[in-house]
Design a protein around this nucleic acid. Sequence first.
DNA 1: CTAAGGACCTGTCGGC
DNA 2: TGCCGACAGGTCCTTA
Length: 270
Amino acid sequence: MPELPEVETSCRGIEPFCAGVEIAQIVVRQPKLRWPVAPNLPAQLAGQVVQSVGRRGKYLLLQVESGALMIHLGMSGSLRVVDDTVLVGKHDHVDIILRNGKIIRYNDPRRFGSVTFNQQGANHPLLKKLGVEPLEEEFNGDYLINCCRSRKVAIKSLIMNSQLVVGVGNIYAQESLFRSGIHPVRAANKIAKKRIETLVVHIKQVLKEAIKAGGSSLKDFTASDGKPGYFQHTFQVYGRSGEPCILCGKPLKQAQIGQRTTVYCGSCQR
DNA sequence: CTAAGGACCTGTCGGC
DNA sequence: TGCCGACAGGTCCTTA
């Protein structure tokens, strides 16, 4: 379920249960994820204390002394905090069993996510090529303008390119472009600097709002329903193809950009 | 170097 | 009710 706000919410949700707590055992029921779960992963983590819980892009990082457990939620993954009285369900692929009796349970129907162990810090192959964090100051107008230079891909594809900036997924790419009045298919190098600066502001704004909404709607991370808060959130364009634009009232259009459905307003976005 | 397309999976929904 | 195709929040890898 992850766009970045959801990963951030998961991060904050599990943190109180596992920070400072020893991992008793890891149980892998289905190792065939996006990357196969290494057979020795449980042995590498058993007995180690979770020092902190963090995030890099959409990777959750549970830091231990010898490295970090990296969890990616893919398209359909989610985490819950349970105890051993909760029955194991379909697609509950991995349990991180903690010494305090809690279990971090990883569920992922489509198995596009991953659970890997990282001994190499930021040099891990999956992290090494990631771009800047969208909510950090290093993601700013100058940075994005520079990215757009000499690239003629659709601006939507560009902001979803995780080698440039991480964490902007299909939903928030659409929302931030709408707020910025930029047509999603417009060539990146054909957009005025001022408008790119506006886009940066809106990307940050849209992500922050979603994190806030996620945090407030998901007050109990042990809730049985792992549905993210942001699906109760209303979107201005995502999923609204054919419905009226909230600004001009004309029906919203839909297109495929980089094989992803994209909804936009043909008259408000140029 | 950039850009475009395929690949990986299961579940759900609409149409017939 | 059942079957079938289209589609879904990601991103890595290969090819051009």
